[in-house]
Design a protein around this nucleic acid. Structure first.
Lengths: 381, 381
DNA sequence: TTGAAAGCGCTAACAA
DNA sequence: TTGTTAGCGCTTTCAA
């Protein structure tokens, strides 16, 4: 604790002593001629390196047109004086605006609408940081239509796209072309993961399937029987991966259980009821059901109508009003979820990092596979 | 898509067309005399409201000294022109620096060191936003010492404190006095939750205990037997709440299980071994163990030494190197965790919001109760 | 109760 | 290859 000289002057500069204000500290330290506690600025850095502000800026932003020797001198000075750039100042000076678009499937149910809500929330939350975030729905019936929607996007209007669409060669090409035009693309939830250079935001689907199998295996308690697996479609890479992960654990660790071939609802209510009824009719010993797709409403309705949820172990994906209710009533035994808010914010951070040519903390952007039971549901979420 | 007049001029202003730059847009729109797409600034707002910049600022920051009528005029103008303040500019102009301190127990093991790592990570990550984050260890043997440590903190050196310490009247008083001095305080992990006006960052411990009971109940599969409950101490409010939540679910839903009285290790390795050995000696029918405290290493070692983890269902708290390994080998059946990175970042956001007198999004700051199995562990974390 | 004006630290157009 | 300089949008001091 240092003595503050001329305390009245200091106080005069501090109308609301809530948090430290550098300006005061500047004054304070100038008076006591101790400047070390202030954070060095580009100006200090320029002085320390013996160059101009412009050169410092060039080095900091890795812009070309600086001699290697000068670059080194600046970098040395950075370490020496412990310079940390002020992001607020940089953002202000750049006056950047980031326009990001989320492309979501038009045919979506509860989970998509959850996502939409998080997107508009993100738009509100990030708008003070110069972001303009919106979503747009695209038809998913034909990869061609997705491609068309992608090609319509121009770098003059959009800086980044988060695409939620099933993988296909056409879509992949269109996304690549978009990137070349200067519009950054991340794949959201579905689409390729780890495979391409493009970023993927979503859970590891193989692990998610494995988690489902583990929960079912443990919850079923050694009973022998069949496990129903229900998906919207098995054409999507994410469904395939979930199924692979599921089968791997089930066959290895639970010989008492036998997983039936995947039932595909195609998002059609009537069809869902029909194929699920049939499965129950043809298999009297179904002890569990795994609802694999992100829209659980229809399959869940069909399963619950045809069976006793108290004796059947049911696991579904994603937390929506429907699955939350099912969890609370005991209709569902567990939900495996990826947090929509996290998905959206992670996409935004990734796109922004790409725009700024910044590296991202991969580990912080990993989307966790959440296991939700009745007991660990958060009251508000 | 509008036609851009004088495209060459525009291009000249856009050396790296990575993301939109407002400046160009300004130029662009000025040329085509369409200004509506630009985000209004305080200047625009001042003009629209017919007042000066200073007055606008006073209204925006809810500072006193403005006539009610003027306030209303400005607020109307905000809605009319759709003004959204630029946070970067505000931060820059304020040159604020936030100094936050995490006070952690000195006697901590793996989980505390995990927290420490996240704190220094946060310090790196947030330093570009003018934050200076550090941690400090305090002895927890005597509430008096915690109180003393709290009272030593001065608002001239610290803007906010995240306190991880068991609740006690003395500590509560000291924290309150600190707040009065202008140092904001949040309680981290332990300490009061919901009870006081002070913010709490951590999981709902009652729900966490209930989750543990549910998992044990389901994993044990109807076998009859006793459940061992191990804690560091039962003097802490968080342990009590976990125990309450645990008992509630176990007695209500699993009459086949009987929870033994809590064993208290007091963080002592020898004692842990002794009391756990005794418990096994006195109860031949223990089918599960719940390690309730955040440091699971010692209890886990003791339990594993005295029993066969393959037949015993074990649940512990927090993801550390030890529990991660235990999960992978099957020694542990599940881990109930609160993410240390989230805890730290949430504390920082809360403290910052308090410094800025901003409201926070309660729902976004809720710490989730994670259930971790072998299958949903993230590769890097 | 209000307003004018000088910055905050960084960026980028332009000059050299 | 480097430097000078005018802002970016907001805050705050001081004067009125």
């Amino acid at each position: 604790m240092r003595q503050v000289p001329h305390i009245k002057i200091v106080l005069r500069y501090v109308p609301h002593i809530a948090c430290t204000r550098l300006k005061n500290r500047r004054l304070f330290f100038n008076l006591s001629s101790e400047r070390h506690a202030m954070r060095p600025t580009t100006k200090d850095l320029a002085k320390a390196a013996g160059v101009s502000l412009a050169t410092v800026d060039r080095v900091l932003n890795k812009r070309p047109g600086v001699r290697q020797k000068t670059v080194e001198a600046v970098n040395e000075a950075i370490n020496k004086i412990g310079f940390v750039r002020n992001l607020s100042a940089a953002n202000l000076a750049k006056s950047r605006q980031y326009r990001f678009r989320f492309l979501l499937p038009r045919r979506g149910d509860l989970f998509i609408s959850e996502l939409r809500d998080r997107i508009s929330e993100a738009n509100t939350g990030f708008s003070a940081e110069g972001m303009d975030i919106a979503h747009q729905e695209i038809s998913q019936v034909d990869p061609h239509l997705i491609t068309k929607a992608l090609l319509k996007i121009s770098p003059e209007e959009v800086d980044g796209v988060a695409l939620m669409a099933p993988e296909s060669p056409q879509v992949r090409d269109a996304a690549a072309r978009l990137q070349e035009k200067g519009v950054h693309v991340v794949h959201l939830i579905s689409g390729q993961q780890n495979l391409s250079v493009m970023d993927f935001v979503g859970i590891d689907n193989h692990a998610a399937g494995a988690t489902a199998a583990r929960l079912i295996g443990r919850f079923v308690c050694g009973h022998h029987g069949k496990v129903m697996v229900i998906s919207e479609t098995m054409n999507a890479r994410d469904s395939l991966e979930r199924r692979r992960g599921f089968d791997q654990i089930l066959t290895r660790d639970y010989p008492n259980l036998w997983a039936l071939p995947s039932l595909e609802t195609h998002g059609d209510e009537a069809r869902a009821h029909e194929i699920i009824s049939n499965a129950f009719a043809n298999n009297s010993d179904i002890v569990a059901a795994y609802v694999m797709s992100s829209e659980a409403r229809m399959p869940l309705n069909a399963v619950s109508q045809k069976s006793d949820p108290n004796t059947l172990t049911i696991i579904a994906h994603e937390l929506t009003d429907r699955t939350r209710k099912a969890l609370v009533t005991g209709e569902l035994d567990a939900v495996i979820a990826q947090n929509p808010g996290h998905l959206v914010r992670s996409s935004v951070r990734l796109l922004r990092a790409r725009c700024d040519k910044r590296e991202i903390m991969k580990s912080q952007e990993q989307i966790r596979i959440e296991i939700l039971l009745q007991e660990n549901l958060l009251p508000l979420q």
